[in-house]
Design a protein around this nucleic acid. Structure first.
Lengths: 187, 187
DNA sequence: ATGATTTTTTAACATAGGTAAAAAAAGATT
DNA sequence: AATCTTTTTTTACCTATGTTAAAAAATCAT
């Protein structure tokens, strides 16, 4: 469980009391490859940390599938739209490999953020980060054609390249699998 | 100056002391149409509130111009990438109309967030919001063809439609002005 | 009002990427 | 090893949108 705490402390060092309190509220859950961590329409009530494994967060639109993001080891994640406002999720999250999660429930996050300033600061920073990640994504989608997007994905995620199918990578980039295959064909 | 505070209290109600402290740190500045609030490469050291006016935040890439976002009256904004990490900005912000801003300096934001829990919570919420806004934007860029993007922009920003040029709207949607003109031509 | 500037529209042409279906390759199952 | 399943590649065809250039329309300034 302490890996989750370590990751949080990289965003903002918690006080000793907050650390203890935080650890006491954690739970764990495992998912087999192909199992869903959440489905659309459900309200996401957990903030997760991936101890081991790989998940894909995505949604469907007009018969196409779009991947918002992959999360792998040592990453904190949640279903952003659903967790923040406790509304039904637009997205699905599925395990691409056998995955072990550590998590804390929404109510506990709320409580901790109220009683502990250092935990609130952690939340501020992790959400700032999410905003910046999404901003970077928007810029990339604007800037680049399919070839550049693939090259950029490959460069930024060398460790994931071998673990994720071409189809899923295409869905992340926002192009069809055929197009991605074409891109790779011409060296 | 109190409009800025009111807006903050909509995100999270500050304590009386924090309110007073916050107000004492505010300054104002006016920009004529066409003047720059910031340019790329500069570090953004302010969190702004628009009392009156309209600004466009954008950047250049390969001879094209992309608009990230328009901000109008009663909106809190900053140069996200630059403000959060105090790094040189990738973006420019220009006044599309004569604009009056109220603002607080980065150092004051930092100080307030350290000494006051309610202000930190405000920051957490405004950055969560920015993350969600950007997420929604990504989804829209994925989902829709140019026509749908325009219809959606028009629906979500009826008040801005008359104030922003077609070229700027096209740059926000991520299409050429010619394409946008075509879209409007076929009813 | 008149001319100057900016914005919007139209036209002609080029191209990136979508769809569908089949072939090939890789991986899993018995 | 042989079969079944999934993933990736290839082909043919089509459409949306980019580019460039120019005309038309609208807006602004003197």
């Amino acid at each position: 469980m302490t890996e989750f705490l370590e990751q949080i402390n990289k965003y903002n060092q918690l006080t000793k009391e907050a650390e203890k309190d935080f650890l006491s509220r954690l739970k764990t859950k495992s998912f087999k490859k192909g199992e869903f961590i959440n489905k659309e329409g459900q309200i996401c009530k957990q903030l997760y940390f991936i101890e081991k494994g790989l998940v894909k967060q995505y949604y469907h639109h007009k018969d196409r599938l779009f991947v918002l993001r992959f999360f792998s080891e040592n990453t904190i994640f949640t279903v952003l739209d659903s967790f923040i406002n406790q509304m039904p999720a637009d997205f699905l999250t599925v395990a691409l490999e056998d995955t072990n999660l550590i998590y804390i429930d929404y109510d506990n996050v709320q409580e901790l953020s109220k009683i502990d300033h250092s935990f609130e600061t952690f939340l501020r920073k992790i959400f700032s980060n999410a905003a910046l990640y999404n901003l970077k994504r928007i810029k990339e989608m604007f800037n680049n054609d399919a070839t550049e997007l693939y090259v950029s994905f490959a460069k930024n995620n060398p460790h994931l390249l071998q673990r994720i199918s071409l189809g899923d990578i295409a869905s992340y980039i926002g192009i069809s699998q055929v197009t991605l295959s074409r891109i790779r064909a011409k060296k």
